[in-house]
Design a binder for these strands. Structure first.
Lengths: 143, 143
DNA sequence: GTGCTATTTGCAACTGATATGCAGTAATGG
DNA sequence: CCATTACTGCATATCAGTTGCAAATAGCAC
């Protein structure tokens, strides 16, 4: 196994004519180490706690770039009104549920929607691209 | 039929100790006349075009109030990063698809998710509340 | 209609999330 | 280690939505 995840990511970044920088590496590292999608602000806080010098703007710019490169996914949780980001590498298509009480976010590994695409294309004559499916509710502790 | 939609809405507003005002009536009228969910800014623009004097802040406050009263629904379309609102009265549960090209929004009358609730509750131990399911793609004209 | 009270409104100012302009810095290929 | 060009930081701007407060008004009682 000569080609690790990090190397593969760097290759993809280079292939698009972009660079693997100190801050980009740090952003990716935090996203990789976190098992739920982070908002830019949360990500920035984690970088700060790790004593990594980075400007909030650079966090935004890196998230946008990595999203365009397809290395991370941008999502919006139910009624949260802001974006979150999570690493794509090694993760299957999935959705989320978020607790209205404590804000805890849990992955849902199911996706009942794959079969629906054809139906929707027929119904609307759209060419269906992406979808988002997000749930909210109350987690065990907050019930 | 002595009890129209308007009267019913006014009753619900009054029942909650709130008032049916000039601006609230206008906001409801525009939402009723529009067959897709509007952002606060779009709603404000339509009111202006109809020469209705209203402050943008009042639009926000009315939308919040009407949402709390359960008369309108707040939703977030796929990757749009802001809220939209639509009238609930007389409309079944549904979802949307939005064109990446022109922004056109079309209703999807299907909802494949009802059966899923029990499954998710079992899997996560959450008590499932609401969900959002939004699609994006390319509409016939933009393909 | 008159008057009363609580809700609403308009205006201004504010917050929070995200974007942009620009000059300086640093990652890559040669 | 040089040149090129992407990236970073800082300041500043924009956009969505919120909040404080005094003035306006809806709804109710008379």
């Amino acid at each position: 196994m000569s080609h690790g995840v990090k190397t593969r990511m760097k290759d993809e970044i280079r292939a698009a004519g972009r660079r693997m920088t100190r801050t980009r590496r740090a952003v990716l590292a935090v996203l990789e180490a976190t098992r739920y999608p982070l908002s830019p602000a949360e990500l920035y806080a984690r970088l700060k706690k790790k004593n990594i010098a980075i400007d909030p703007v650079t966090v935004y710019r890196n998230l946008t770039a990595l999203k365009e490169l397809g290395l991370i996914a941008q999502l919006e949780l139910h009624h949260e009104g802001r974006f979150r980001y999570e690493i794509k590498e090694g993760r299957d298509h999935h959705h989320h549920i978020r607790c209205n009480g404590c804000g805890r976010i849990v992955d849902l590994l199911l996706c009942p929607l794959k079969k629906l695409t054809a139906m929707i294309e027929q119904e609307t004559r759209f060419v269906v691209g992406d979808h988002s499916l997000e749930w909210s509710g109350w987690c065990p502790k907050c019930q």
